[in-house]
Amino acid sequence: MAKVTIDGISIEVPDGTTILQAARMIGERNTADRHVVPPAMCYYSKLKTSGGYCRTCIVKVTKGSDKDPRPMPKPVASCRTAVMDGMEVANTTDPALIDARNGVVEMLLINHPLDCPICDQAGECHLQDLSYENGKEASRYEFERRTFDPIDIGDTIKLHMTRCILCYRCVKVGEQLTDGRVHGVINRGDVAEISTYISQAIENDFSGNMIDVCPVGALTDKTFRFASRVWFTKPVDAHCNCENPKCSGNAVLWMKGNEVLRVTGRKDMWGEVESFICNTCRFDRKDVNAWTIEGPRKIDHHSVISQGHYQLKREQALLASPAPNVPELAKRKELKDR
């Protein structure tokens, strides 16, 4: 066991636990301590080798361990760094670290479209939450943003590459949950993209889980009928006796009246699905009678509520921005005309 202290709060965890996991354990022990948990955009505890890419979870290790108390010279990715006995970590208590993390968030946003108001993920987007909490008022990026046309990858999944933050989660789903990955990352640097290369359908029993793990609105459910703002739908926990042995059958139905608009996995307090479901459950079981309803799902409305603030903040920023780019200009005009 190792004792680690994050923002002054200590916990004993098994050896090999990462700083991020330890922080989540603190948050689970007492939700009032959730602030010690770094934001994670690419790590996913259910996907092996995930994490390390986005750098939003960076923390400052102010004391390496009891044995070697020296601080670590650079911020480290908490999702990929194991705790040591006696380690002390700053997540929200180090101004330099917060500044560095804001920097990372700014980088994630410079090429991200400002289309939250029309994005299918709005209200469920981790990037939106993150930018609300760690973002600057206005983007200082004045160049044209990277754009891609949305494409269908099969009948059930749509890829809006423009929104992708290259977290690699969907690639790991392809590798680890399906019986053969057909999509991946092509090109390199800032023109890297998620792609099947030659237009191919991602057809596989478990491919739909990509939608759930995607932290932004880059992979969306094409069968989500009347793609409706999520906060107008009513989520209920439900299960079915799915014949697929690998499928947990535990899902959330997003209902409007008696109609099932969408089926997703159940997410825990860290925004991760608790267990994966198969594509039949997700895309085809849209009849409420095929499910046993357990009751209303408690959704952390954090992001839905912050959506309002966020949008306001973005719009104000846009109106004040000294040098908006072309899409921003169009948007600004629209806002002014309103």
């Binding site: 053969g180 990955r181 092509i186 390199r188 290369y197």
Partner: peptide
């Protein structure tokens, strides 16, 4: 190999 394994390397 799977096709994507080749595409992702060739394009890098």
């Amino acid at each position: 190999l799977r096709h994507i394994e080749v595409y992702e390397v060739a394009s890098f």
